[in-house]
Structure formats: structure tokens, C-alpha cells
């Protein structure tokens, strides 16, 4: 496995719930939803982030894209993407906190626009809700690439070849279809094709296969695997399923209640887990194979 440069580095990330009281009193530290999370994704590698529902996996992803909901605030931490730090939050001085944040947010909005999609792409759990039902797939693709300053006509052949690469045999039919005419697996592949078209360096996959049937799931994971091998994309793979991690990941971070309890190489996590929580996850994972367990471990 190639050890390329780091595409994403998160250092000491902390996300807290913003409440009315927080503006006047100093109680922001009361409810950390994500607490002191650090992880890194290298080129051509997959970093897995695993934990049960509500452990803060998705919030970590949203923080990277600066897409946290209004009720939450990125309190502390540093997110570095491809060497350039886009945000640095040091909020030690609480009196200037609010102004400080506001100015920063305004300055950075345009930078974020360029960054999102172009350098980092995200695929989500429910692909059906990522598309506007009244526009065709072709329109979605056209809109995305023109939003990033690319020309539709000159990129047309690239669109076709990307769609072919992802297993759509007749791209024209797909481009004129509406989202509801396609299945979940097909829409997920369209999402991946958008990331490929814009040549994103980082792919954030938040439970990309959870709603799909097993055969489609295997197919999507094959595609992500191909992307990282051939296009050298770094992938942050969020899931609650250890078998998805076993299939794809190089490094793993285990999250519980908003904090990383263990991280390391995938083999170490599976064969030499240290944290009690990781052991519990592995037990649950193996017990799902039921009576098949001896066969699959051989």
C-alpha cells in the first residue's frame, strides 16, 4: 500500500451544542458532542471510523465539510486538508468568541464553497434524499460541474466515460432519467461519479452502504476500493459495520460517546484490540456470523 501524503488531518476536534444560555454564561463546555477527536487520512488509503449510532461519527464528518447544523458549534480543534489549514479555532479568549467566529465564518464562506465538492466530496447514507426529484440526473451533474467553473460541453465525454467506469452501460439513458427512476445503489454510484468528475482528493463516505442490499453493497465497496487504488483518493469511511471496515480500511478509529477510544492499523484492531469497547464491538461482529463463524475465520 502506498504511503502518500496526508490529505486530511483532524487535531483535537471538539463540537458542542450551542444553546441560548451559552451566549451569556460560560457553559459551552457542558455538552461536548465530539470531544478531542484526532485522525488522519492519507492519499490512496482508507481510514475507517466506527462506532454505534450517536457516537459522533457523522458530526466529525460534517465538521470537516463545515456543514454542522446551526445548533452546534465547532469549539476547538484544527482541520488540515492537503497541507493547507482552512480553519483554526482557538477560542481561549471567550469575550471575543462570538465576533471572532462570525468574522471568520464570513471570510471563509467563499473559500469553503471552492473547497467542498472540488477537493473533498461526500457521499451519504440515503442517496435518494441527495437529489432533487424534479430534475434529471444530467441536470444534477451539469449543475455540479458548472458550479465549480467547468464547462459542460467540453466535459461531456468525461462524464460519459466516468459513468461507464462505474458500470452504467448507456450513459445517455441515465442522464435523462429522474432520481426516482433509479435504485438506491444506482444513485449512490451517481454520487461517486460526481466525486470522480471533480477529481476530489478526499472522499468522505458516511454509511455509504447501510440502506442497500448485500449485493449492491459489495459493488459500491468495490468501486470505492478501485477509486483509492487507481485515482489515489483518500477515503474517510464512516460505518457501524465492522465487516465494511474489514473489507476496505487500512486504519481504524473507534469512537464511543464522542471520543476516540482506540485507533490503529486495521489488523491490530481486529487481532489485538485494547479498549474494552472495541472488544465488545468485535464480539458483536463475530456473533452475527452465528454458526458460520468457524468457516469464515479459516
Amino acid at each position: 500500500m502506498s504511503c502518500g501524503k496526508t490529505v486530511l488531518e483532524i487535531n483535537g476536534l471538539k463540537v458542542t451544542l450551542k444553546s441560548k444560555a451559552c451566549e451569556t454564561k460560560e457553559c459551552c463546555n457542558k455538552l461536548p458532542l465530539v470531544n478531542d477527536v484526532s485522525l488522519a487520512v492519507s492519499q490512496g488509503e482508507v481510514t475507517g471510523l466506527i462506532g454505534e449510532s450517536g457516537s459522533g461519527k457523522s458530526l466529525t464528518c460534517l465538521s470537516v465539510m463545515n456543514l454542522l447544523p446551526d445548533t452546534m458549534v465547532l469549539d476547538k480543534g484544527r482541520i488540515t486538508i492537503a497541507g493547507s489549514s482552512l480553519e483554526e479555532f482557538s477560542l481561549a479568549d471567550s469575550s471575543t468568541k462570538n465576533n471572532h467566529l462570525k468574522n471568520r465564518t464570513q471570510n471563509l464562506t467563499s473559500q469553503w464553497r471552492c473547497f467542498r465538492g472540488r477537493r473533498a466530496a461526500m457521499i451519504l447514507q440515503n442517496p435518494m434524499s441527495c437529489f432533487d426529484p424534479i430534475f434529471t440526473i444530467g441536470y444534477h451533474i451539469k449543475e455540479t460541474i458548472s458550479a465549480h467553473g467547468l464547462d459542460w460541453k467540453s466535459h461531456r465525454s468525461k462524464v460519459d466515460s466516468t459513468l461507464c467506469e462505474l458500470g452504467f452501460e448507456s450513459p445517455n439513458e441515465i442522464l435523462s432519467a429522474y432520481p426516482f427512476q433509479l435504485s438506491g445503489g444506482m444513485l449512490q454510484r451517481i454520487m461517486v461519479s460526481l466525486a470522480l468528475l471533480l477529481e476530489a482528493e478526499l472522499l468522505i463516505a458516511d454509511e455509504p452502504t447501510t440502506d442497500l442490499d448485500v449485493i449492491v453493497q459489495a459493488r459500491i465497496l468495490d468501486i470505492i476500493d478501485k477509486m483509492r487504488k487507481e485515482k489515489n483518493v483518500g477515503v474517510l469511511l464512516v460505518t457501524h459495520d465492522l465487516s465494511v471496515i474489514a473489507r476496505l480500511a487500512d486504519n481504524v478509529s473507534v469512537m464511543q460517546n464522542g471520543a476516540v477510544v482506540e485507533s490503529g492499523k486495521v489488523e491490530d484492531i481486529f487481532h489485538r484490540p485494547k479498549a474494552a469497547y472495541t472488544k465488545a464491538l468485535l464480539d458483536a461482529h463475530f456473533s452475527l456470523y452465528g454458526s458460520n463463524i468457524n468457516e469464515v475465520l479459516l
Binding site: 465487516s243 473489507r247 486495521v266 463463524i293
Partner: peptide, 28 residues
């Protein structure tokens, strides 16, 4: 009755279902 039997089955659907089962352990 078992996954192993499914992998060796003559039924193409069953084989496909069995083949798309993700590994329990990472394979290098």
C-alpha cells in the same frame, strides 16, 4: 444451512449472495 454450503451451491443467486458477504477479518 450454512454459508460454506452457499458458496459452493449451483444456484447462481445463492452464490452471488454468498459471494457478496463481507469478510469477518481484514485480508491483506
Amino acid at each position: 444451512t450454512s454459508l460454506l454450503q452457499a458458496e459452493k451451491s449451483d444456484d447462481p443467486i445463492l452464490r452471488e449472495l454468498a459471494r457478496s458477504v463481507l469478510p469477518a477479518l481484514p485480508k491483506r
